[in-house]
């Protein structure tokens, strides 16, 4: 199955810019973050972080453990209310919006520690995630109206498409908790994708994967960007992966932005080298 899924192809996209990417590439800011600050009591976990994600980009955040990367994600997705700063998504201020409201706008994330619905089947995980695209009317569900059946059918098709994509078709009716670790990681990404997001935020997706799986993940992420119209924000420690696929990299150290630029620039930045060597 290599063709883009019909559901995704038909989906109306307010900012359709795939064709004239070259002219708009520089201007289309999907996500703009200014002076993001998060304090926990006396601890400043994130200090005046500035980020910019353009449409169709893969942007990485790197930094030593405890640098505040996950906290940035938590602020962006509404898990934490930032102490200070502004987050704009497609020009709209979403600072302090509720968690589920932000994901309804098209920003979905995975977690550093996989969070699946463990005792539900793989397929059910993907169906649950499509909640907002489904016909949730009680009566039409009880009596299985044609509209309801169609919406369930579409959800199943979409789930089947993504299962195939992440190589889990065989596992469709297994409990998600029984999958191997790498499979759980892939399922978590698939579960994000069935919500049809515009922006995917991955928190250490390669952690715990073997080199082969990491390579597949690399290809998957690029495929998502190229063929499924998502911009990706990535937290990752695997430098090879990060350098290979990122369009732009932000480095955070102890909550404070240290540097940002293309992979080339970051590789040669003396501050970054020092921070990393100092850590190790």
């Amino acid at each position: 199955m290599s063709k883009a899924h019909p559901l995704h192809a038909n989906q109306p996209r307010p900012l359709e810019g795939v064709l004239d990417m070259s002219s708009q590439n520089k201007k289309q800011n999907l996500l703009e973050v200014d002076d993001l600050t998060m304090r926990f009591g006396g601890l400043i976990a994130v200090n005046k972080v500035k980020l910019n994600v353009e449409k169709g980009q893969i942007v990485s955040i790197i930094g030593p453990n405890g640098a505040g990367k996950t906290t940035v994600f938590n602020c962006l997705t509404g898990f934490y209310k930032p102490s200070d700063g502004r987050i704009r998504y497609r020009g709209e201020n979403i600072t302090g919006s509720k968690n589920h409201e932000i994901s309804l706008k098209g920003i979905v994330r995975t977690f550093q520690h996989v969070r699946l619905f463990k005792s539900m089947t793989v397929l059910e995980n993907l169906l649950v995630a499509q909640h907002r695209h489904l016909n949730t009317n009680l009566l039409s569900g009880l009596f299985k109206t044609p509209a309801y059946r169609r919406s369930e059918r579409e959800a199943l098709d979409c789930a089947a498409y993504w299962l195939d994509k992440v190589n889990l078709t065989e596992m469709a009716n297994r409990d998600a908790g029984n999958l191997a670790y790498g499979q759980q990681r892939r399922l978590e990404i698939a579960r994000c994708m069935v919500t049809r997001p515009d922006m995917l935020m991955l928190d250490e997706p390669a952690a715990g994967l073997n080199p082969q799986e990491t390579k597949e993940l690399d290809e998957l992420i690029c495929d998502l960007r190229d063929h499924h119209d998502v911009s990706v924000m990535l937290i990752e420690h695997d430098m090879k992966l990060v350098m290979e696929i990122s369009d732009h990299i932000y480095v955070i150290n102890q909550g404070t932005p240290l540097a940002d630029g293309t992979p080339e620039q970051i590789k040669n930045n003396p501050d970054v080298i020092k921070a990393y060597l100092g850590e190790a």
Partner: peptide, 10 residues
């Protein structure tokens, strides 16, 4: 199963 994951899925 997981209310945090639920919210993150909208």
């Amino acid at each position: 199963e997981d209310d945090i994951a639920c919210q993150s899925l909208g």
